[in-house]
Simulated scan of single mutants.
Amino acid sequence: MAFLLVPELHLLDLAGPAQVFSTAAGLGYGYELAYVAERPSVPAAQGVTLTARVDWPELGRDDLILIPGWRAPRLRVNGRLAPQTLERLRAHHAAGGTVASVCAGADALGQAGLLDGRRCTTHHAVQDELARIYPRARVVRDVLYVVDDRVVTSAGIASGIDLALHLIAARHGPGAAGRIAREMVVYARRNGDEQQESAMLRYRSHLSDVVHRVQDIIDARFDEPLPLAGLAAAAGVSERTLTRLFGEATGMTPLRYQQRLRVERAEHLIGQGATVEAAARAVGFQDARMLRRLRAR
């Protein structure tokens, strides 16, 4: 993946997503990070000068280009990109790749014409200006991020972490995103239209090592059959003890916790366009009947 650096960029706009993907790489998910700019030295808004390569790495359709935001009391003050850079963004998207932005970085996607006819968002301070400059864009307010046809835009500063965790979850599943979020000590949040706390973290505010170990197993393999006996053996306790400890820590049984993860993941897939039947199969249900029943609760 490549980060496109623009002068006066905000460090957290870059560092947040970079930390997510570098943590993913360290956990074995195969990411290689490149930092590209139109000039080899890029001043940040916080007074640090960054270095970047001026030649683009070879990118395929599975790669991501992410544009951190920059200091923008008004969008047109900074962030003007050269025609060849904008063409690079258009060509990557046209070839099936994903492009993403944090904060004012949405302006770069707008310059490339990639916001036309698409839903998008940006920092609340420049939402009105983005809508005015790009009248064909459909600016969504008060959400963390928006996904529309491999164009992913996020709100200000720290929401870049939410965006990056979403992209990890979409590609590798929520277990991977939850694992990275725990490594970074952040909440795994999703779109503002959906629940903003993942079940993986909502039921982690306890001190039981046994329950945390079992939750780790369920998080990673929630789409598989996980008999209580196997979970108890992995935790080194009896089935009765596991059920008691799990209930005390989370207020539910291991099976109910697994079902919540399945439903949460299925809701995400349905929100991305999957049918209920396809989502049910993807999360481990034999058919859609159980998923419909659980969603109705």
Rank of each mutant, 00 (worst) to 15 (best):
A155P: 04
A95I: 09
R118E: 08
G96I: 04
G69N: 02
L109E: 01
T121F: 10
D148V: 12
L109T: 01
A91W: 01
S101A: 15
D148C: 07
L64N: 07
Y145A: 12
L109F: 02
L115A: 07
C120E: 07
D148R: 13
W70F: 15
A100Y: 11
P73K: 12
D62S: 13
C120K: 07
H123R: 10
L66R: 04
R71G: 12
I67H: 08
G110P: 02
L66F: 12
R61N: 07
C120V: 14
G60C: 08
V102N: 10
D62N: 13
E87G: 15
A95M: 12
V140R: 12
S154R: 07
I133T: 13
R136W: 00
R71L: 15
R136A: 15
R118S: 00
R76M: 13
Y145P: 00
W70I: 05
G69A: 04
T122G: 06
V152P: 10
G97V: 12
L66N: 03
A137N: 10
A91Q: 15
L81T: 09
H92M: 04
R141P: 03
G117V: 11
L64M: 06
A108Y: 03
A137R: 10
V146G: 01
S101T: 14
T85H: 05
V152Q: 06
I133L: 15
D116W: 04
H124P: 12
D149E: 15
T122P: 07
A104P: 01
L130M: 12
I67Q: 02
R132N: 06
H92V: 02
V140E: 14
A95D: 14
D107G: 02
I65E: 09
D107Q: 13
H92W: 01
A112S: 09
I67N: 11
I133F: 08
A91E: 14
R90V: 11
D62Y: 09
G96L: 08
R88W: 12
C120Y: 02
G113E: 01
C103H: 12
V147G: 00
V152H: 14
G69Q: 02
H123I: 00
A155S: 15
L64D: 02
T85Y: 08
